[in-house]
Amino acid sequence: MKVIVFLITAALSSGALANGYTAECGPYSMIARKGQLNSINGERVTTQKIAFLGEDGIKIDMTLMPSRSGNNYGFQYIHRPGSNSRFLNVQLLQNSLDAPKIIGSFPCKKVND
């Protein structure tokens, strides 16, 4: 597991510090640290699934259940292979399958630690 987190950190860093990466995505701040679950707006995610997309792409699916606000959220960070663009999709997770989906997508930029 630590090896996977290290590889994620290395893939995300693109010249950032070897111990982590910070990205600002709209109103959200995402922090990836070696050997830890990611944090979003200072809250550690409860689940995290990582998939590599080619040689330099990555997709990270995360959930935050419950957040400080009491709501449950799903996050998806995507860096497409061969591209410098990164974005974060956010969905409010609701109990009812009939409820309308509330989804936002935010472009991300790297922040120096």
Rank of each mutant, 00 (worst) to 15 (best):
M1P: 05
V3M: 07
F6W: 11
L7R: 06
A11W: 04
L12Y: 00
L12K: 02
S13E: 02
S13L: 08
S13D: 06
S13R: 08
S14Q: 15
S14C: 14
S14V: 11
G15R: 04
A16L: 11
L17W: 06
A18T: 07
A18E: 09
N19E: 06
G20A: 11
G20F: 01
G20Q: 05
Y21V: 05
P27G: 10
Y28Q: 08
S29F: 12
S29R: 15
S29T: 11
S29H: 08
K34N: 13
G35P: 03
G35W: 02
N38L: 14
I40K: 04
N41G: 10
G42E: 01
E43D: 09
E43Y: 08
V45N: 01
T47N: 15
Q48A: 10
K49P: 00
K49T: 01
L53I: 02
G54P: 03
E55D: 10
E55N: 14
E55R: 15
D56K: 05
D56V: 00
D56G: 06
D56S: 06
I60T: 02
M62L: 11
M62W: 02
M62P: 01
M65C: 14
M65D: 11
P66C: 08
R68I: 10
G70K: 12
F75D: 01
Y77F: 15
H79D: 06
H79Q: 11
R80P: 00
R80M: 13
G82K: 03
S83G: 10
S85A: 12
R86N: 07
R86F: 02
R86T: 02
L88D: 04
L88Y: 04
N89D: 13
N89W: 03
V90P: 05
Q91A: 15
L92E: 00
L93M: 11
S96A: 14
S96E: 07
S96N: 14
S96G: 13
S96H: 08
L97Y: 12
D98R: 15
D98K: 14
D98H: 12
D98P: 04
P100F: 03
I102W: 05
I103N: 12
I103E: 13
G104T: 01
P107K: 14
C108V: 05
K109Q: 14
K110F: 09
V111H: 08
V111Q: 10
N112K: 12
D113V: 10
D113E: 13
D113S: 14
